[in-house]
Design a binder for these strands. Structure first.
Lengths: 253, 253
DNA sequence: GTTAAAAATTGATGTGTGTCAACTCAAATT
DNA sequence: AATTTGAGTTGACACACATCAATTTTTAAC
């Protein structure tokens, strides 16, 4: 078929994201089998949709490059933004229970993805326990991420939300081995505001203060973090409080 | 061993909740195998914990009777309430990716549960594709529920949140085959307020108005719904708007 | 049944963030 | 380069809900 030989066409065995998509317990032979069912898609452009609400669910997607916004529309037609996904993230697993995608997923930047047909993935996972376990983990992580988002929305004020967003983003870049104090993030502040349950005006004012205080500078598509510690404190991030509580519970019976 | 013969000791093959816990595609023989690994626990009393944050993950729990509150503690020591679970719900699956429970789960009422050791469940699910698929579905549903909660928190006002909570609760009773316009719900309004990101005062005022307007009466542990339609409208529930949007997308290309 | 503690109710007041509007700046288009 | 469009910024103002406080009702304990 004369497939393209470029960065968008690397097989799983050679993909730098392999450890992120399916990190644990997979033998090299398993990776090869997984690789054989993966469809490497041509790059998506800004505004292209990976899937839309209600479409038949056929594949999950692993992101190799770019950013993907996942959102639904409320009955008033507003976007409810559920997350921004980066290389190594896997999306679409939430469609599983209904056989229809429950959200819309759109590229915000030039984006490269692998599509993995779910029926084949499910069959393969029945043969490779480590892969099955990994799928469970991915979904379990999805549940937890949703809970963190809920906590942000229900318990933190606007300053904390914005600070947490940037801090969390930085941690995600860090965990992927990217520079985490200075990076490109081609997402509209308007979208970030929606994600955080705030207005663009409020986010703009907070970013202005963060810049003035030399904590973070977010101009255009570039984010520079000067004071990661300060940012984390401002976010009200939990450090290790829950661990302490656990010890306390033990003492109290 | 002289096991108790009572309502708390029914095996899966005879359990009325069988279709809710693991509804689709399981043969009777599969149910029997599942049944053999299920540990039927003695009833929990109000205030008893099923598990606590940080404990080693060993089992998921299917709720047979009662109500369970799932929550975490924020760094200021406030409860972040993530959900209230009813008979037929399965909880604890979010602990999977870390091997430690990520939340606390406490009985709010006399509650009966089945504990299912996850290592055994995982082995069994590798042998029964329908069971494995069902586990995927349960987690997928967990992700979606979290997203609905996020939407409530970020997009709806106090009236809509309270109305949606009661309406949704009613739907859950309906889907379990219970009376859904008049039911017992032994949860503090204070807890519901926390769950909705509101204060007890605000919830109390809204409930007072709902009672005055003859929409819902929630006194003590009893909820009576007089106007389910009105409640749904007040909740801002989406009816079938997204379906319409989908059609629109098709037309627009 | 009596008492104590906790939850819910109701009113008065405060404030964080939304809303509205005008303006500046950047990016895309011609 | 000029023009248009949309994003981001900044200020003035409004309001939904939080906060604080006092009282009543319900639940739990003895």
């Amino acid at each position: 078929m004369g497939e393209l030989k470029n960065a968008f066409n690397i097989g799983c065995p050679n993909c730098g994201l392999q450890k992120i998509c399916f990190p644990t317990g997979l033998m090299r032979a398993d990776i090869t089998r997984l690789d054989s069912i993966v469809e490497r898609k041509a790059p998506l452009h800004k505004g292209d949709h990976l899937y839309r609400f209600g479409e038949n669910f056929d594949s999950v997607f692993a992101i190799k490059a770019g950013v993907v916004k996942v959102y639904t529309l409320t009955n008033q037609g507003e976007e409810q933004i559920l997350g921004f996904y980066l290389p190594g993230d896997v999306i679409g697993l939430d469609a599983l229970s209904t056989k229809h995608y429950q959200c819309n997923a759109v590229a915000l930047d030039t984006t490269s993805v692998c599509a993995i047909p779910f029926d084949q993935l499910e069959i393969l996972s029945m043969q490779i326990p480590a892969l099955n376990h990994q799928l469970f983990c991915l979904m379990s992580k999805g549940v937890n991420d949703g809970r963190v988002h809920s906590e942000i929305l229900s318990k933190r004020n606007a300053d904390q939300r914005v600070a947490h967003f940037i801090w969390n983003l930085s941690q995600r870049f860090l965990s992927r081995g990217y520079l985490h104090t200075e990076f490109r993030f081609n997402v509209l502040q308007r979208d970030v505001a929606m994600y955080l349950g705030l207005t663009p005006e409020t986010v703009s004012r907070i970013l202005a203060r963060l810049a003035k205080d030399k904590v973070v500078n977010w101009k255009r598509k570039e984010i520079k973090i000067f004071d990661l510690e300060g940012l984390r404190d401002m976010a009200g991030e939990k450090a290790h409080v829950q661990e302490m509580e656990k010890d306390l519970n033990v003492k109290l019976g």
